[in-house]
């Protein structure tokens, strides 16, 4: 059994050149180290999962007694955030053969993604506060001249019929600070020394925001150009080569 995800922290963005010379936007994530604080089992909890915590410095006075006991049970240092991640069934675990599996107290490092090309990332987007309709829903706004009414939404419905506002009418309100999932971000590098994971593209949330990184649930189908620019379809490559000989 192996853990399917890890907790991380957004460090920042930069750019990177690949072998072809193309430049890619990169988000740097500090992924782990994490510890397994508790194992949920099918027998006891009704499902299999691992509760993991991001190892971070936490003041002893900030941990309450209940949590202290919880951490002491699996003999792990106090952690700031906990998250549950699913466990992958062992690949060779047939008839009763118990794979060595994971146990509470185990460390999880970024090398769990060593064989993966894509990850899904769940984060909390930057909070925008109480935002108007133009920012929140992309409304066009009012005219910029001719008696100016700039950032208004205009009418929200007809008058005497229906005499009410339809549910779902897009209006100003709180924006951001939501859970956002970004799927299939390509892994551009793994740094085991510093526990860094470099992914291509943007990740929700501010710098130093916590994110849950998991193996891609539905990675793109394997096709030409799947593994980056280096992948060439062998069939097409041979056709091309033979065509050139003529």
């Amino acid at each position: 059994m192996s853990v399917q995800g890890i907790l991380g922290k957004k460090v920042g963005m930069t750019q990177m050149f690949d072998e072809k010379g193309d430049v890619h936007p990169i988000t740097v994530l500090k992924a782990g180290p994490c510890v397994i604080t508790q194992l949920k089992t099918l027998a006891k909890d009704g499902y299999d999962a691992a509760q993991i915590g991001y190892v971070d410095f936490v003041k002893a006075s900030k941990v309450n007694k209940a949590m202290t006991g919880h951490f002491a049970k699996s003999n792990v240092p106090p952690v700031r955030i906990l998250k549950e991640v699913p466990l992958e069934a062992p690949a060779t675990g047939e008839n009763g053969e118990q794979a060595e599996g994971v146990k509470a107290g185990d460390r999880i490092l970024v090398d769990i993604f060593a064989d993966d090309k894509f990850v899904d990332i769940i984060g909390t987007s930057k909070g925008r506060g109480f935002a108007g309709v133009i920012r929140r829903h992309g409304f066009g706004g009012g005219p910029k001249s001719h008696g100016h009414m700039f950032q208004v939404q205009g009418s929200i419905g007809a008058s005497s019929f229906p005499s009410r506002v339809f549910p779902g009418q897009r209006m100003p309100g709180h924006m951001g600070h939501d859970q956002v999932t970004v799927r299939n971000l390509r892994i551009r590098g793994i740094d085991l020394d510093d526990n860094l994971l470099l992914v291509e593209g943007a990740v929700p949330g501010p710098r130093d925001g916590y994110v849950l990184i998991s193996k891609a649930k539905a990675p793109p189908r394997e096709r030409r150009g799947f593994g980056g620019s280096g992948t060439i379809d062998p069939l097409k490559a041979s056709k091309k080569a033979s065509a050139k000989k003529k």
Binding site: G12, T14, V28, K30, D191, D194, L196, R207
Partner: peptide, 9 residues
Amino acid sequence: IHPIMQKLA
């Protein structure tokens, strides 16, 4: 600049 970013750069 974040020390990690500096190292990576």
